[in-house]
């Protein structure tokens, strides 16, 4: 548990950081909260020659809420939890952040670090897929955007190229009155999920007018359950449609057996989490009748 030798760089501006990452190439790694990278370095599973600390970059710490919500990548989990405006606009972020690790870690851990690392145990990637977020990616030579739903290729393998940095995360501000729930089964405080599910949905009376379901730690990447939206919006909500959505989610899952349980158990728990998240989201959703087509939230 002792890391090898490395150079520590602390840029003062974003552009300085991007140049350092470009110059460092494959041997440079950005560090924010450090809760993934430092343990890997102590185990010598990661041995970057240069560590570029983003801690001094004020322009990566911000939360803006308009038609879209934009969050700077270096915003800490604690700041997500503390923001009342963010809670009002998108309460599932706080609900999810509160289930990450413990307060000490949340003071350091960042949203950008959580989504960038490609660790299937991290909670924010599935939530970002659920919210259909985009990652704003910058490098010394330019800027691009990629959907969270397209970002993850395999465990620790993502669309991020050498020299690139996620600088912000952006998603459409959810409709007022939407229902939401992040359900996470874990062995103890600080643990990764045995299984977890993020659900947002909108309702008009008994009808689900829009829904999104994504899963944490049930495969080697986060999983967006595209089918679930169709199932839930296809007919008035019932135990059967929920069960069908659960089945569709379970069909995608392929968790490894580990200390949290067998693959069978974790898959089944994935199903239970989806079911409970849908039920909780339905409970929270504003069910006032809405006119068809308005805001584009109706299916079709």
């Amino acid at each position: 548990m002792i890391p090898g030798d490395f150079d520590y760089l602390r840029p003062k501006t974003k552009s300085e950081a991007l140049v350092m990452l470009r110059d460092g190439g494959d041997e440079a790694r950005p560090i924010a909260g450090g809760h993934s990278l430092i343990p890997m370095m102590k185990l010598r599973m990661a041995a970057p020659e240069k560590v570029v600390d983003l801690g001094g970059l004020a322009d990566l710490k911000h939360i803006s809420i308009e038609k879209d919500i934009t969050i700077g990548a270096a915003t800490t989990q604690h700041q997500l939890i503390e923001s009342g405006a963010l809670f009002d606009a998108c309460p599932i972020l706080r609900e999810t952040a509160l289930l990450i690790a413990d307060p000490q870690i949340r003071y350091c851990g960042t949203l950008g670090g959580n989504v960038a690392n490609g660790d299937p145990g991290n909670d924010m990637p599935a939530l970002m897929q659920c919210l259909d977020a985009s990652y704003i990616i910058e490098s010394a030579s330019g800027k691009r955007e990629i959907k969270a739903r397209d970002f993850y290729h395999a465990a620790y393998f993502t669309a991020l190229e050498t020299g690139e940095l996620i600088t912000a995360i952006r998603f459409k501000t959810p409709e007022a009155g939407h229902g939401y729930s992040y359900q996470k089964l874990k062995r103890k405080v600080g643990d990764y999920a045995t299984a977890a599910a993020a659900v947002t949905l909108s309702m008009s009376e008994d009808n689900v007018t829009g829904a999104s379901v994504a899963l944490t730690n049930l495969a080697d990447t986060p999983l967006y359950v595209a089918e679930a939206a169709d199932i839930l919006t296809s007919s008035p909500l019932s135990a059967d449609t929920i069960k069908e959505a659960v089945k569709a989610a379970e069909a995608m899952m392929a968790p490894a057996a580990d200390g949290r349980g067998s693959s069978e158990y974790r898959t089944r728990m994935g199903g239970v989490m989806v079911q409970r998240a849908i039920e909780a989201a339905v409970e929270r959703a504003d069910k006032t009748p809405k006119k068809g087509g308005l805001f584009g939230w109706l299916r079709g």
């Binding site: 413990d102 062995r187 103890k188 405080v189 600080g190 643990d191 990764y192 580990d258 200390g259």
Partner: peptide, 16 residues
């Protein structure tokens, strides 16, 4: 050996 770190080996916190 599996479980030889505090990620897996169960040390209850005040919460549990």
């Amino acid at each position: 050996v599996i479980g030889a770190s505090l990620m897996d080996f169960f040390l209850p916190t005040a919460v549990e």
